[in-house]
Computed example of a mutant assay.
Amino acid sequence: MPRQNDIEGAFRAAIKHEPSGRRTLATEDFMRHLALANWDWSLKEANEWIESHVSTFKDITTIEGQARTFMLYNPNGGL
């Protein structure tokens, strides 16, 4: 049975740390980690959760569609 607190853990596990120091998250990776915790979400549901629960990641997707990419940013003025 899926647990509510597994969602945040799946989000954290899906964050990629690039050598440049940039941190990104792909919706598809988030969904993959959710599935490991018995959550079966669509791309749309995963994007909606990110947009409503996470304020420190912005959408940097360059193509149309629900498969999106988010990047960690400093909401106080810097990237």
Rank of each mutant, 00 (worst) to 15 (best):
M1R: 10
M1V: 06
P2V: 10
R3A: 09
R3V: 02
Q4N: 14
N5A: 12
G9K: 02
G9C: 05
A10N: 06
R12L: 14
A13S: 12
I15D: 05
E18T: 03
P19I: 01
P19G: 13
P19C: 13
S20M: 09
R22Y: 08
L25M: 11
L25F: 04
A26G: 05
A26S: 09
T27I: 06
T27S: 08
T27P: 04
T27E: 04
T27A: 08
E28Q: 12
E28C: 06
D29S: 13
D29R: 11
D29M: 07
F30Y: 13
F30C: 03
M31F: 01
M31L: 14
L34F: 05
L36Y: 10
N38D: 12
W39I: 03
K44S: 10
K44H: 08
E45Y: 04
N47F: 05
E48R: 09
E51S: 15
E51K: 15
S52M: 11
H53Q: 13
V54S: 04
V54P: 02
S55F: 12
S55H: 09
T56D: 10
T56A: 06
K58M: 09
K58F: 07
D59N: 15
I60M: 08
I60P: 01
T61R: 04
T61P: 03
T62Q: 14
I63P: 00
Q66L: 13
Q66I: 00
R68T: 01
R68E: 03
T69K: 06
M71F: 04
Y73F: 15
Y73T: 03
Y73E: 03
N74R: 08
N74K: 07
P75G: 06
P75H: 09
P75M: 10
G77P: 01
G77C: 03
G78I: 00
